[in-house]
């Protein structure tokens, strides 16, 4: 299948790039990405991936838009308050790119949704339990996972290519038994562009993975927007990890 005239124009800035080109764009158009959480991270992720022409985007979030979201969740407008986030997001994303498939799941993440066969899962959730669930499922199904988080002025990104690497996972780095920290975005606040920076990095990582150009399994990036500093950290597999030490 070759690109249409409209697609040639729409994706021309990808087509100009030697390491994307028509073949790379075809790959993006044939891909399916699941975005879990349509908050401050999920909004920029969904916008960039829809614009890039990811053929199918599955969106999962049970929440409705609240006025306190509008400071950072850039898919939503004031008039969207009290509507389901996934419905508002779907409308906005289809306006941006009508040719892609956007599937809205207005529910908490479930095994059922995770079994729909996405090529990559993007973790844009806001709590540790959901992150651990995604890690466990992605590991079991050998699905790559791109995970980010933010609070205050700080952001974190860590991605796992479970297809190529069967050791080192989210649970090796963040112990599932240690419990949630007391600070979260609802009680400690968060700066909108920090979410934008981390969400953009997630979207770039997804595109890179789909094009087969990812080699940072389990490497963590930390951003402190207050000082403008980045830190790059490596991690090792935990000897007795309950998720990835069992094979």
């Amino acid at each position: 299948m070759s690109l249409s005239d409209e697609q040639f124009l729409r994706y021309s800035r990808h087509l100009l790039m030697a390491d994307i080109g028509e073949q790379g764009q075809q790959t993006l158009l044939q891909s399916h990405v699941l975005i879990v959480g349509l908050g401050g991270l999920g909004c920029p992720v969904a916008l960039y991936l829809a614009a890039a022409g990811i053929g199918r985007l599955s969106l999962c979030d049970a929440d409705t838009v609240d006025i306190t979201n509008l400071q950072r969740q850039i898919l939503y407008k004031t008039e969207d308050c009290d509507q389901l986030k996934v419905d508002c997001a779907k409308t906005a994303l289809q306006q941006l790119n009508p040719a892609i498939d956007v599937v809205a799941h207005a529910s908490e993440i479930s095994a059922e949704i995770l079994e729909l066969g996405a090529d990559i899962v993007v973790d844009c959730t806001d709590n540790l339990a959901a992150r651990q669930l995604l890690n466990c499922h992605c590991y079991q199904r050998a699905t790559p996972l791109v995970s980010a988080s933010a609070i205050g002025w700080e952001g974190q990104l860590v991605s796992f290519d479970f297809k190529a690497n069967r050791r080192l996972c989210y649970n090796c780095i963040i112990d599932e038994n240690a419990g949630d920290p007391t600070m979260n975005c609802a009680n400690a606040g968060v700066v909108g562009p920090v979410l934008g920076a981390m969400g953009s990095l997630q979207a770039a990582t997804v595109i890179r993975m789909l094009l087969g150009q990812f080699d940072q399994h389990g490497e963590m990036q930390r951003y402190d927007a207050k000082t403008g500093r980045w830190l790059y950290l490596t991690a090792s597999p935990k000897p007795l990890c309950a998720i990835c030490a069992t094979e």
């Binding site: 999920g42 959730t125 806001d126 992150r131 980010a148 975005c185 968060v190």
Partner: peptide
């Protein structure tokens, strides 16, 4: 030795 606070929001 670097210490990093938890970041889990989104």
């Amino acid at each position: 030795v670097a210490f990093l606070p938890p970041v889990t929001g989104g």
